[in-house]
Amino acid sequence: MRLNARGWARLVALAAALLVALLLHGTWRLFRLRSPWPRRFLGWVARIVGARVRVVGTPLRRDAVLLANHVTWIDILALAGASGAAFVAKAELRDAPLVGWLCTLNNTLFVRRGDRMGIDAQVAALRDQLAGPQPVAIFPEGTTGDGVTLGPFKAGLLAALAPPPPGVRVQPVRIDYGAATHDVAWVGAEDGARHAKRVLNRRGTFVATLHFLTPFVPEGDRKAIAAAARAQIEAAW
């Protein structure tokens, strides 16, 4: 698939937004200030690719784990822009050109899926991350879905919340693309580059609704925490 005129215009806008965000981020860091620009840049990217983010509820801004359903890479853009969250991502993403570096600017926690021997270290890293100034977002389905059905939750990393660090809460998040779900969902064997081009080429805008559901203090083991969050998301489906 090739980019059409609309896709190229959006790509140019993305490059311009990146340049502005990097200049501003560098200025903030020069004065040893905490930079808001990585998450603001992600919010800009969401808008450039056509998303009009609608927030329902109140996102927690720190001392929180956000557990959300996963439909597409646009989820990351919308969630970061709305909540300022850092993310848990697969380790392979760290080596992706440009994208991996941008992830580090937003304090992404990289984990190796299926690494049962390293799970204790990953849990410890997540607990350390929760002591920082950002909430941490996890997509517990472990992969993108079709946006119509909710997959099972993988609870491994939630061992970091059993028991939870002092003051930390869990906030379930339901992500909904409404009528555009079929257009933006990243499912099956579709190549990532092809999916990105398909979104960039898409005509018009679409609404991405983020339902920030009722936060709760995690209780019980990791599976109980995952089940409690999933029940809220399913009820809001």
Rank of each mutant, 00 (worst) to 15 (best):
V65T: 08
A64W: 02
V53C: 05
A21N: 08
T58M: 09
A51E: 03
L22P: 06
R47W: 15
P38T: 04
P38M: 00
L24V: 10
A68E: 05
G7R: 06
L18D: 11
H25N: 05
R34L: 10
W44M: 14
W8K: 07
R10T: 04
N69S: 02
D63G: 07
A17W: 07
I48M: 03
D63W: 02
R6W: 06
G57L: 02
V65N: 00
L66I: 06
A9I: 07
L30G: 07
L11S: 10
A46T: 02
P59A: 07
V20C: 01
L19C: 13
R39A: 14
A17G: 10
R6D: 10
S35Q: 02
L33M: 15
H25Q: 05
L42N: 14
G57K: 01
V56A: 14
W8R: 10
L11V: 14
G50C: 00
F41R: 02
P59R: 07
H70I: 00
L11T: 14
R52V: 00
G57R: 01
L66R: 04
V20L: 08
A16S: 12
R54S: 10
H25M: 09
N69E: 05
A68R: 10
L11K: 06
V20W: 08
S35D: 10
L30A: 11
L33T: 09
A5I: 12
I48L: 04
A46Q: 05
A16Q: 15
V49D: 04
A16Y: 15
P59M: 05
L33I: 13
L23I: 13
W28L: 11
A16F: 14
L23C: 13
V12G: 11
A51C: 03
R40N: 01
V56K: 12
S35V: 04
G57M: 07
V12K: 12
A15C: 08
H70G: 01
L60C: 13
L67N: 06
F41D: 00
F41T: 03
P36T: 00
A15V: 15
L19F: 13
V53M: 01
R47E: 14
A9D: 09
V12N: 13
T27S: 15
F31T: 05
L24A: 15
T27K: 13
A16C: 11
R29L: 15
L23E: 08
L23Q: 07
L30V: 10
R54M: 11
G57A: 07
L66P: 06
R62V: 13
A15L: 14
W8T: 12
L33F: 07
V45G: 09
L19V: 15
L19M: 14
V49F: 00
A68H: 04
R39H: 09
A21M: 06
R6K: 12
A64K: 13
G57F: 02
G50E: 01
A17H: 03
L24Q: 09
S35Y: 06
L66A: 10
W44H: 10
A51R: 00
I48H: 05
W28Y: 15
D63R: 15
R54Y: 06
A15N: 12
P38D: 05
L14S: 07
L67F: 03
A9M: 09
T27R: 15
V45H: 02
W44A: 11
R62N: 09
